[in-house]
Amino acid sequence: MSFALSLTVRRRGPGAALIVVAGLYSIVPLVSMLSAALAPQGTIPDGLSWPSDPHWHNFVDAWTVANVTTLLKSSVLIVLGVVPISVLIATMAAYAMTVLRIPLGKVFYLVLLLTLTLPYEIVIVPLYQQVNQLGLLDSRLGLILPLIGLNMPFAVFWMRAHFLNAPEELTEAASLDGAGPWRALVHIHLPLARPAVTSLVLLMFLSTWNTFLLALVLVNDPDKRTMAGALQAFQSRYSTDIVLLNAGALLLMAPTILVFILLQGQFTKALLQGAVKG
């Protein structure tokens, strides 16, 4: 019994140690930011030391200073404009390429993969010119449309990985029962794709919510940007107050952390589904 226990510890020990190190690597910076955010305003926090008198009102002040209410509404509008459309188009495109095997589907997929190799910054200037010509500069719609296009290659790649693992017998059985491609997608493939779709929603949400450079370039009004896009204005005005800066950063990060905690189960299921079949 003791030999089996020691053997199990030897096998799982390195993996458990790696998980602990990775967890500490992620949690320690957040704890440091929290301790700094609770220090008296105008002071310089000292590392990880917890303040003797935590100033919780710093978060209220940072909320007011950073205009979080307006930025939160703007971010939600942008996310609602980007995520559902991106997921819908990517799901239908991946279904058409993988299950329906449309003509030139492999060519379209190869083009999408090639776009993933392009540096993100290389498209900023062309996007700015196109949005300006469309008269959408300094508007949320002018930010939503480019984000949908930029998210599409990865979204199609993600959903295609799921449909590759879908049993072909399901499509054949649906065809024999008289179900067309649309009914097969809605009633058979989409219920099976729920973990993949939910995890894609999570990834698209994180990508859209944390949009920084594109929001700064295409939107001049800080109230129409995402919360991450407005962080620079907050930093430039209050860069000398480290306490308020940390409190504001934690407020901007809180929604993404909360959404990830709520959807992490579906994200894990999607990863496990993709590991079953290459």
Rank of each mutant, 00 (worst) to 15 (best):
L30E: 05
L147F: 10
H189C: 08
D223Q: 14
P51K: 02
R237H: 07
L192C: 06
L143I: 06
G180W: 01
V125F: 13
S52A: 09
Q133Y: 11
L104M: 14
I148V: 05
F205Y: 15
L110S: 14
T64S: 15
S74Q: 02
T69G: 04
P29G: 04
G42N: 05
F59I: 01
I144P: 10
V186Y: 11
G81F: 11
G149M: 05
P191F: 01
T268V: 13
P51H: 00
P126W: 12
T256G: 09
Q273D: 14
L141S: 13
Q41G: 11
Q235E: 05
L218E: 02
L136I: 01
L216R: 03
L134T: 05
I102G: 03
F59V: 03
P181F: 05
L150V: 11
M33G: 00
S236V: 01
T256E: 04
L134F: 14
I85K: 00
T240F: 13
A215K: 02
I242K: 09
L190F: 07
V243R: 01
A62P: 01
P255Y: 15
G42C: 04
A173R: 08
L134C: 08
V65N: 03
F212G: 03
L30T: 03
Q273G: 12
T117P: 08
P119N: 07
T70P: 04
V68W: 07
W182M: 12
L258W: 11
L203W: 07
L200M: 02
I261V: 09
D223E: 15
V79M: 12
V276R: 07
L263Y: 04
P29H: 03
L143T: 05
L272D: 12
I85T: 05
V131R: 02
L231E: 00
T226A: 10
L114A: 15
V131Y: 02
P167E: 00
V83Y: 06
Q266K: 13
L24F: 15
L137Q: 13
S35Y: 04
P29D: 03
I144A: 08
A62C: 02
N67V: 01
A193C: 04
G15H: 13
L200E: 02
I85H: 00
F157L: 15
R225C: 00
